[in-house]
C-alpha cells in the first residue's frame, strides 16, 4: 500500500500579493505620527519611537514571554525560556550600571517604583496572570503584538484585559489595605550590596539557564541544534 512519495503535488497556489508597498506606506505614516507627536512634546515622540522598536523586535523574533513559561510545561522546549534569561542577564547589567551611577553620584536611584512589594497579592496576581496569558495566547506585550499582526482573538483579549485592569484597579483599595500594606519592597542591593546583588542575580540566571537546558534534554531527548 505504499503510495509514491510525490507528496508535493498540491493544488496550485493563489497568486501572492506583495505587501511591501503597504508596509512602506505604514512606515511613512508612523514617521508622520512621530513627527506630529514630537511637535506636541518631544517625550511623546520618543516613546512612540521606542514602542515601534519594541513591536518590531518582538514580532521579528516572535519573542513571547508567555511561551517562555508555557512551552516548558507543554512540550518541554526551552529555547524561548533561555532567550528570555539572556535578556534578563543583559538588561540586569545595563540597569544596574544606570542605577549605580545615580547612587554613586548621590542622586535618587531611577526606576525604583518597579521594585514592587512582595505579598500575597504578588502570588495571587502571578497565578492569575499565568493562567490568563496561556489561555488568551499572549501576555500584555504579546497581545499588543498580535493585534498588530491581525489576530481578532487577541483584539478581543485586549478589550477584556483593559476591563480586567479597571476591575483590578477598583479593588486595589481593598487589596492594599488588607494584603499589600506593610509588605516589604526588597531591593536586592540593600540586602547583598551592589556588587553582591549583581553577582548573585547573574549566578541565579546562569543556574536557571542550565536547568532549562537540562529540562529540554530530558523532555525532548535530543541535543539542541537551533
Amino acid at each position: 500500500m505504499s503510495e509514491p512519495s510525490t507528496v508535493r503535488a498540491r493544488p496550485a497556489r493563489k497568486k501572492k500579493r506583495n505587501q511591501l508597498p503597504i508596509g512602506i506606506l505604514v512606515f511613512v505614516i508612523m514617521i508622520a505620527i512621530g513627527l506630529l507627536l514630537s511637535l506636541r512634546s518631544g517625550q511623546l515622540g520618543m516613546f512612540w519611537l521606542f514602542g515601534g522598536c519594541f513591536g518590531f523586535i518582538l514580532q521579528k523574533s516572535r519573542f513571547c514571554f508567555t511561551a517562555s513559561l508555557r512551552d516548558p510545561c507543554i512540550t518541554g522546549s526551552t529555547s524561548i525560556t533561555k532567550a528570555v534569561l539572556i535578556a534578563f542577564a543583559i538588561t540586569t547589567v545595563g540597569f544596574t550600571a544606570i542605577k549605580y551611577s545615580a547612587f554613586a553620584a548621590g542622586l535618587p536611584i531611577p526606576g525604583q517604583s518597579y521594585v514592587m512589594p512582595v505579598s500575597l497579592a504578588t502570588v495571587v496576581g502571578g497565578v492569575m496572570f499565568g493562567v490568563g496569558m496561556v489561555i488568551a495566547g499572549g501576555c500584555a506585550s504579546g497581545t499588543l503584538m498580535r493585534v498588530g499582526e491581525g489576530f481578532a482573538m487577541q483584539m478581543l483579549a485586549l478589550v477584556f484585559f483593559v476591563i480586567g485592569s479597571l476591575w483590578g484597579a477598583k479593588d486595589m483599595g481593598w487589596w492594599n489595605l488588607n494584603v499589600i500594606a506593610g509588605a516589604p519592597r526588597v531591593f536586592l542591593p540593600d540586602v547583598f550590596g551592589w556588587f553582591g546583588a549583581l553577582v548573585i542575580q547573574l549566578l541565579i540566571i546562569g543556574c536557571l539557564y542550565v536547568a532549562a537546558d537540562l529540562w529540554e534534554r530530558k523532555k525532548l531527548g535530543t541535543t539542541d541544534e537551533s
Binding site: G125, V131, F160, I163, G164
Partner: peptide, 19 residues
C-alpha cells in the same frame, strides 16, 4: 480571550505589572 483577558488584567494590577 474573554477569560484570559480578565484574568490577566486583574492579575496584573495585583502584582503591579505584567510580564
Amino acid at each position: 480571550a474573554v477569560l484570559g483577558g480578565l484574568l490577566m488584567g486583574y492579575g496584573a494590577r495585583l502584582a503591579g505589572g505584567c510580564n
